[in-house]
Design a protein around this nucleic acid. Structure first.
Lengths: 208, 208
DNA sequence: GAGACACTTGACCGGTCGGTCAAGAGAGGT
DNA sequence: ACCTCTCTTGACCGACCGGTCAAGTGTCTC
């Protein structure tokens, strides 16, 4: 598929359906073990359709990863809009990120995979840097206001992202309950204790 | 290869060499894109040799992952032996884990991959649970002694492991400098600021 | 030197996979 | 009715991959 094709509404719907099914199949079986034939079969179309909408299997995954970043950031942006000061914005961002992680466990698995191959790791690095920069900026502001102690903002932001990613995963990858079959958005329950622990660890560490 | 074969010294050396080369090739190219032929070629032996020492490509990766856990735990155990109280043991364990991560960036990439496929994720879950339980026990002890605030020890332990894993990765996966070519143990420099940030985030969070 | 056993070789096999393409089908516009 | 452009089909292809195996070679023991 060329960079940008003129899609009709029917076309856009097909494309989205392929994206959704691919995400769910990849998450369940792994990227390489899932063949393109498997994806198109699960949607019920011929193989050519896939290559009408996507350049290649790799490019499809790259798009899934990029779209995930876009979705996460917009979720964060919406969440921190109301908060007044940097510290509260940080906390709101943390909560929003956890919510997003729990709601997108499929994508989290793909992110894990992505880090294991250079092609995708490059995409993820760029995305990660953007999110970390966002957070680091908030940390700097909070430091300037004397709300928290100083330090290397980038590293601190990375630590926060780490907690979010991994605590989210505790409920995402540990149990094997990612979307079985069709990608129906079954809102998973967010464990409040987990969220509070994550927030507390980000803000106060072990000393609570 | 059967469960346990009687290996001569030469045999054990061959096996180790295959393990090391496989780890480095997997980390550089990804697990699936790296063929068994590529591995044996890089060692300079015939393909049959691989299947003399390992049951399958999958079983090889499982062994790499299990061995990684063993190595990490023994590194941790050695580090916390001297520390007197639980809190200092925690800190020593954190430092040891970061050192290990930075010294084993190749394996870290494989761990990322492992989470993306059920077969390997199962192995990783077991390993992760062991490490988390170790840490959670220390946290409980520290809480009992009033050294830190209470909470869900398992979740807190997960948060700590998260920080370690990810901050370690900042220097492992972000830059593309994993062992190029033969797996020569080139001790990488550990950034002291990174270690201190990680320790501080684990203990005190953003509030420093 | 003969036998036993650890190890090595590399051609070979069945199967799968990503990707192509010639041939059309649908749908809108005029 | 006819053209155009989006979309769909599915057989087909070349490449490659994990794994096998019959036929060896090296090395130790007695």
């Amino acid at each position: 598929m060329a960079d940008e094709r003129q899609l009709t509404r029917r076309g856009r719907e097909r494309r989205d359906k392929l994206l959704a099914h691919a995400t769910s199949r990849f998450a369940e079986n792994g990227f390489h073990p899932t063949s393109v034939s498997e994806i198109v079969d699960s949607v019920g179309v011929g193989k050519g359709v896939f290559y009408w909408y996507f350049e290649s299997k790799d490019q499809l995954l790259e798009e899934i990863l990029r779209e995930a970043l876009r979705s996460l950031r917009s979720h964060q942006a919406a969440a921190i809009a109301d908060a007044a000061d940097p510290l509260h914005r940080l906390e709101a961002g943390i909560r929003a990120s956890i919510e997003w992680s729990v709601a997108n466990t499929d994508v989290l698995r793909l992110v894990m995979f992505g880090w294991s191959e250079e092609t995708f790791a490059e995409v993820l690095r760029k995305g990660r840097d953007i999110v970390v920069t966002d957070t680091a900026r908030l940390i700097e502001q909070a430091v300037d206001l004397g709300q928290i102690m100083g330090g290397n903002p980038t590293m601190m932001a990375n630590a926060i992202r780490a907690i979010i990613d991994e605590l989210g995963r505790e409920y995402a990858l540990s149990t094997r309950n990612h979307a079985t079959g069709s990608p129906s958005g079954d809102a998973p329950p967010v464990d409040p204790e987990m969220v509070e622990t994550a927030v507390r660890m980000c803000l106060h560490g072990l000393h609570g």
